[in-house]
Design a binder for these strands. Structure first.
Lengths: 217, 217
DNA sequence: ACCTGAACACCGTTCAAGT
DNA sequence: ACCTGAACACCGTTCAAGT
C-alpha cells in the first residue's frame, strides 16, 4: 500500500539520502531499512544502483572530499595555501565525523588523489627536494586525516555541546589528581586542557610540520 | 551437554580470548558466539565480567598499548627515544590492526596516558618551550596514531602478502596513466610507490616533525 | 555467586515475483 | 529495466532458570 516513487532512483539520490542519515545520526543511523523508508522504495531498488553498504559509504565520502577540494582556490602563497587545505579538510571531517572514520578505513580512495596532488604540488612549490617530497606529502596527508579523524571521533563521543566542557573538566580533574612523580607532563597538561582549542592545536601541528619541511630545503 | 568450564572465568581470560579472535580474523571475527565457543561458556557468563562489546574492545586495546609502553626502556637520547616509542607503537598497531581503529575511535583511553606522558616528557627534554610543548605533544601523538592506524587499515585491506605488491602496482599503473597536466605530482609519485616502505616513510615523517620541533627551541 | 542457552530485536543481503 | 518486500543468515544483548 506504500506508494511507489514517481521519479527514478539513481546512485546520486541514494548517496544524498545516505549522507543525510549519516549526518543526522552517525554511522549507526545508516541502515538499509532507514534508507528504504526515506526513499520510499525497497531493498532491491537500492541494490540495483549500489553494490553494498561499504560501496555506499565510500561514495558518500568521495562526495564530501570532492566538495572540499573543488572549493579550494589557487592564488595564495604555498604555505598559506597548505594551511587552508588542511583546515578545510579538518572542518569538513568535523562537520561529517563519519568521513574521518571512512578515510582511515580506505585510504586509497580516488577522492584522495586530489588531496595528494594538491598537497604534493604545494610542497613542491616550497622547494622540498625530490627525495623528501614524497615522504613529506605522505606524512602531511596522514597527519591531516589522522588528526581530523581523531578529533571527529572525539566530537562524536561528546554529542551534546554542554557535555563537552563537563567531559573535559572531568578528564582534567582526573589528570590533575595523578601522581606527580609518575605523570609530571600529563599533570601539567591538565591545566591547559579546559582552555585548549582542537582546531588551533591542529593548526599548530601543521605549522610544526611545515617548519620541519623548511629545514629540508 | 557441552561441558562446563572447570576453572573460573575472569575479565583477563575473556580479553585474552578476544585478542586472539581479533588477531586471527580481524574485527569481524570478534562475536559473542565465537567467544562462547572458544571459552566453552555461555553469553551470560561473559556479560557477567564485561559490560558490552565496546568495553571488551577497549580492554583488549589497553592491554596492547600497556605492553608497548612497559617494554620501552629509558636511557637513550631523547630524539632517539622518541623515534623508538613511535616505531614501537607503529609496529604494535601493524601487528594488531584493530588496535589502530580502536584508538582512533576512543582517543581518551587511560592507556594513552602513558603514551602522552612519555612523548611529552621526551619533548620537554628536547627543550621545547612550555607554550608549544602541549601542541607539539598532541600533534606528535596524533601523527603516530593516525599514520599507524592508516597503515594498519592498508595492511588489513591487503590481507594476502602477494596481493600487496599486485595491488600497489595496480594503483601505480592507474596513477601513471593520469593526465600529466592535471596530476603532475601523483604521476611522479607513482614511480616511487612500488619501492616505498611504509615503516620508513612513517619514520621520515617523525623526523620532519622533530626537525620542526627543533626550530621552536 | 556464577553460569547456561533460548529468545528478542535488530542487522545486511538475496531473490522470486511483480510492473 | 527497474522495483517490491518476504525471507535468510547473521548480529549484540537480555533474562528466567539452573548449579
Amino acid at each position: 500500500m506504500t506508494k511507489r516513487r514517481a521519479d527514478g532512483l539513481s546512485k546520486a539520490v541514494i548517496v544524498k539520502a545516505a549522507t543525510g542519515l549519516l549526518d543526522e545520526g552517525g554511522e549507526a543511523a545508516l541502515t538499509f531499512r532507514a534508507l528504504t523508508t526515506r526513499l520510499s522504495t525497497g531493498y532491491g531498488a537500492i541494490y540495483h544502483h549500489i553494490a553494498n553498504k561499504s560501496d555506499l559509504l565510500a561514495a558518500a565520502t568521495d562526495d564530501i572530499v570532492e566538495d572540499v577540494m573543488t572549493g579550494v582556490v589557487g592564488a595564495a602563497e604555498p604555505r598559506e595555501a597548505l594551511r587552508t587545505v588542511a583546515l578545510r579538510l579538518f572542518d569538513a571531517i568535523d562537520a561529517h565525523p563519519w568521513v574521518g572514520a571512512q578515510l582511515s578505513r580506505e585510504p586509497w580512495r580516488p577522492a584522495l588523489l586530489e588531496v595528494y596532488e594538491r598537497i604534493g604540488g604545494l610542497l613542491d612549490a616550497l622547494d622540498v627536494p625530490g627525495e623528501a617530497l614524497f615522504d613529506a606529502a605522505g606524512a602531511l596527508v596522514n597527519y591531516v586525516l589522522g588528526v581530523a579523524g581523531q578529533n571527529a571521533a572525539n566530537a562524536r563521543l561528546l554529542a551534546g555541546d554542554a557535555d563537552r566542557s563537563a567531559f573535559l573538566s572531568g578528564v582534567a580533574a582526573r589528570w590533575a589528581g595523578l601522581d606527580p612523580a609518575r605523570y609530571p607532563f600529563v599533570r601539567k597538561a591538565a591545566a591547559r586542557l579546559a582552555e585548549h582549542d582542537d582546531r588551533e592545536q591542529f593548526l599548530a601541528g601543521v605549522d610544526i610540520f611545515l617548519a620541519g619541511v623548511a629545514t629540508l630545503r
